[in-house]
């Protein structure tokens, strides 16, 4: 708990400003502007080269580069296991760790339950990134559930690779119930990573999850 305390002290000032989204925005603009161009150009170039070698009909480059949106807040779905990662998120909350709010957490009994269908469905509904999180190896409540999670995740990765989705949009992490700090750090990292990739091209128009701003507006309306 000591590292947690350190972090809370450092971020206490931020928490005073009660609006959750507002401290996020300047950071988004600053980081996004520096990160995005570098990451994308190198990845795109490498991909194009590999493709040209492999097939007779070379794959076309993207017609339109995904729009870089300064105000882009990624929609991220987190599948967290009941025994470790979900409790880890609780720990993060109890320790008042400040981290990005741009994710929706879905509790599953075990990370091994996260079938490729879950992840595909999230992307189908407009998610920009999906994080699967479970217990560390050896700590699984069901002994080997997280080993199944690896198998399922590999399958998901293979499917999304064929579909042409960037690899950085999915991530598998092991977070224990005590690792509140790690939970916050992973979320922050992943949010920035997906932010750099931009909106998912697979999100069908008109079927999207609401973006953060709308979600908060809904919540505010409900509170009244």
């Amino acid at each position: 708990m000591t590292p947690a305390k350190g972090k809370t002290a450092a971020t206490e000032e931020k928490s005073k400003a009660k609006a959750k989204a507002s401290p996020e925005k300047p950071r988004a603009a600053a980081k996004g502007a520096t990160k995005r161009p570098a990451g994308k150009s190198s990845a795109g170039g490498a991909k194009a080269k590999v493709k040209a070698k492999k097939t007779a009909a070379p794959r076309k480059p993207r017609k339109t580069e995904p729009k870089v949106r300064e105000d882009f807040t990624p929609r991220i779905v987190v599948f967290a296991c009941n025994w470790c990662s979900y409790a880890g998120a609780d720990t993060a909350g109890i320790s008042r760790i400040q981290y990005s709010p741009h994710f929706r957490i879905i509790r599953v009994m075990c990370s091994g339950r996260v079938h490729p269908a879950f992840v595909l469905r999230a992307f189908e509904l407009g998610a920009d990134g999906v994080l699967v999180s479970g217990c560390h190896f050896g700590d699984c409540h069901y002994i080997f559930g997280n080993e199944r999670a690896v198998e399922q995740f590999e399958k998901t990765k293979a499917l999304l690779k064929i579909l042409g989705l960037e690899e950085g949009r999915i991530r598998l992490e092991w977070i224990s119930a005590a690792e509140g700090v790690k939970f916050g750090r992973v979320i922050d990292e992943f949010v920035e990573q997906v932010r750099a990739l931009g909106p998912s091209t697979l999100a069908p128009p008109g079927r999207e999850l609401p973006r953060e701003a709308e979600a908060f507006a809904d919540a505010a309306a409900l509170a009244k």
Partner: peptide, 12 residues
């Protein structure tokens, strides 16, 4: 998902 207008599949 394949209904998306812009796909960059790696299917070959």
């Amino acid at each position: 998902l394949m209904t998306a207008a812009e796909l960059n599949q790696d299917r070959l």
